[in-house]
């Protein structure tokens, strides 16, 4: 059941992205940016947390989940360290992913070369 819920929630979030791209002239970059920001705002409004509890990875794996971690981290940071936590909290909670993206991104770029599309 847990897997089915992840599948459904994750799939639906992606469908929203697809409708945005097909229905408007938004590029992938626009979609990524809007989803992260939407994740941050929805978390702050208390809407995203229930979705994470229901969908698990279905809600955390899409980029809205990245926004969720950021907002949650920022709020947690404020609770622990006051105003300083607003600056450190969000980035702390996502540091692993970003560091991984930098390192793996670099390694892959060094190893591989792009191929022409066919």
């Amino acid at each position: 059941m847990e897997y089915l819920r992840a599948f459904l929630v994750g799939g639906l979030i992606c469908v929203i992205g697809q409708i945005l791209m097909d229905g408007t002239k938004l590029t992938p970059a626009h979609v990524l940016v809007s989803f992260v920001t939407a994740g941050v705002i929805l978390t702050a409004l208390g809407i995203y947390e229930p979705l994470v509890n229901f969908g698990g990875a279905g809600a955390t794996v899409p980029l809205t989940g990245f926004g969720y971690s950021l907002a949650k981290g920022a709020i947690k940071g404020v609770n622990q360290n006051g105003i300083l936590g607003a600056f450190t909290g969000g980035i702390q909670s996502t540091a692993g992913g970003i560091a991984a993206a930098v390192l793996f991104g670099y390694i892959m770029a060094v190893i591989f070369t792009p191929k022409a599309k066919s």
Partner: peptide, 9 residues
Amino acid sequence: RFPLELGNQ
């Protein structure tokens, strides 16, 4: 446009 390996449509 975009890099070749970007998974865009």
